[in-house]
Amino acid sequence: MPLSGLRTVAKAQNGVGAFILQCKRMDFHYCDFGGSSRGMKDFIQTALPRFASKYPQIEFTVSPRPGQHPAIVGHFINGKQREVSVRKLDNRQILEKVKELRDASGEKLVRSNKPVTSTNESVRGIWSPFHGSRVKI
């Protein structure tokens, strides 16, 4: 057996071929009686149908949660979910929160202190002592 193949799995590159939006579901919870849900109810009646028809790849569910503050729960492809409270927010502010959830990847928010993160190997290669300008001692 002069040569054998190693078994791996090809890595996904979302957006290189197809792009898949990472938010797959959004749940909207509101209360019929509470004043903090006034903006949410307005949003569900006016802005949500237009937003939902614009993003058919997201599943939208609306359900009452009596006696609770209004909230939006985003479910992501990686299995995580993120809940945003929209208590006492108005129509426009809620739309911004919804757009944030739509654009999120579902990963935890992590500060990245490297200029480039890539799976490709660096173009310049690993530093080598035999190339570049020689240091004269």
């Binding site: 040569l3 193949g5 290189v16 197809a18």
Partner: peptide, 12 residues
């Protein structure tokens, strides 16, 4: 479109 480095599959 998935990334696969064919050179890394060789085992001589």
């Amino acid at each position: 479109s998935r990334q696969l480095d064919l050179a890394s599959l060789f085992d001589f």
